[in-house]
Computed example of a mutant assay.
Amino acid sequence: MARQDTSESTGRLKQIALTYKMTRQVDRLVGLVVAAVGIVVLGAFLALGFWLGHPVYLGILGFVLAFLAAAIVFGRRAERAAFGQMEGQPGAAAAVLDNIGRGWTTTPAVAMNRNQDVIHRAVGRAGIVLVAEGNPNRLRSMLAAEKKRMARIVADVPVHDVIVGTDEGQVSIRKLRVTLLKLPRVLPGAQVTVVNDRLRALGDLLSNMPLPKGPMPKGMRMPKGIQRGR
């Protein structure tokens, strides 16, 4: 048990060090800002402790709160730096959706065209959310087609659409998770399960995978699941 705890602690420290290194590549002031926050909080509690005559007690409390404040500031700046690096990168929205949290089921790339414009899907108590990445002009027609298809499959479930980007009317990658979580919850948990089961049973993902045109190369076999679906 002791060895396991030690290895876990070492792993966390390595992860923190790696996160700091990646964050500093984007945010050169992260170290100074985090240190300044910790020093200011600790100094304020020490000053208050000497003034009240309890420097040890308030010093210990100040140290704990200074560490907590520094950790919070570091976490936020690291998150901001990570989203900044992801902005505009293909598949960034899928990575955010994959970590959206409990209560959501996400399926990447439910629709895609030859220009690599892609639509991901998230299903939760807010209904179905179609999250699109790529050229907005091309995505609008793709979203309209996907919404019609969702309406045929689950007509009684609200379908929202989001285009990821920085232009007007779009949602930036750093605000994507918050945007989905702010949607009104209109479905009970049991209905969410039914919707997911229905989409899964219809082979929704496979039906959107483009097949190559022309004859199949010799020696290549189609997956059994697609053969049955066809």
Score class of each variant (00 low, 15 high):
212 P>D: 08
168 E>C: 01
156 D>F: 08
222 M>N: 01
169 G>N: 03
213 K>L: 10
180 L>K: 01
170 Q>V: 02
204 D>T: 10
213 K>Q: 13
199 L>C: 03
209 M>H: 07
193 T>W: 01
167 D>G: 08
216 M>N: 08
199 L>N: 02
167 D>I: 02
159 V>R: 10
181 L>N: 05
177 R>H: 04
162 V>E: 09
186 V>I: 10
165 G>M: 02
170 Q>E: 14
175 K>P: 00
185 R>Y: 03
186 V>H: 00
208 N>M: 08
178 V>P: 00
178 V>L: 10
175 K>F: 04
181 L>K: 12
206 L>K: 07
177 R>E: 11
158 P>C: 06
178 V>E: 12
209 M>K: 08
171 V>I: 12
200 R>Y: 08
207 S>E: 11
176 L>D: 06
203 G>R: 01
177 R>D: 12
204 D>E: 13
215 P>Q: 14
220 M>N: 06
159 V>F: 09
181 L>A: 06
218 K>R: 12
169 G>R: 05
165 G>F: 00
220 M>V: 15
214 G>M: 12
158 P>Q: 03
165 G>W: 01
189 G>D: 14
197 D>S: 13
170 Q>S: 14
171 V>L: 01
221 R>T: 14
215 P>R: 15
194 V>A: 09
161 D>Q: 14
195 V>G: 04
213 K>N: 09
198 R>A: 05
154 V>N: 14
219 G>A: 11
154 V>E: 15
161 D>S: 15
193 T>N: 06
213 K>V: 09
189 G>S: 10
182 K>T: 04
183 L>E: 00
185 R>E: 12
171 V>C: 02
154 V>T: 15
172 S>M: 07
186 V>Y: 00
220 M>E: 09
166 T>K: 12
222 M>F: 09
208 N>K: 11
183 L>Y: 00
203 G>L: 03
190 A>W: 08
209 M>T: 11
179 T>E: 05
169 G>T: 02
157 V>F: 06
208 N>F: 11
208 N>R: 14
219 G>E: 09
217 P>N: 11
202 L>D: 08
203 G>I: 01
160 H>Q: 09
153 I>T: 13
165 G>K: 03
218 K>W: 00
155 A>S: 15
219 G>Y: 06
157 V>N: 05
207 S>V: 07
213 K>A: 12
212 P>R: 09
158 P>K: 03
159 V>G: 12
188 P>T: 02
199 L>V: 03
167 D>L: 07
188 P>H: 07
197 D>A: 15
156 D>C: 07
214 G>N: 11
180 L>D: 03
181 L>F: 00
218 K>T: 04
153 I>N: 02
178 V>T: 13
197 D>L: 08
188 P>D: 15
166 T>S: 13
214 G>D: 13
167 D>M: 05
192 V>D: 02
209 M>Q: 13
191 Q>M: 09
182 K>P: 00
215 P>V: 09
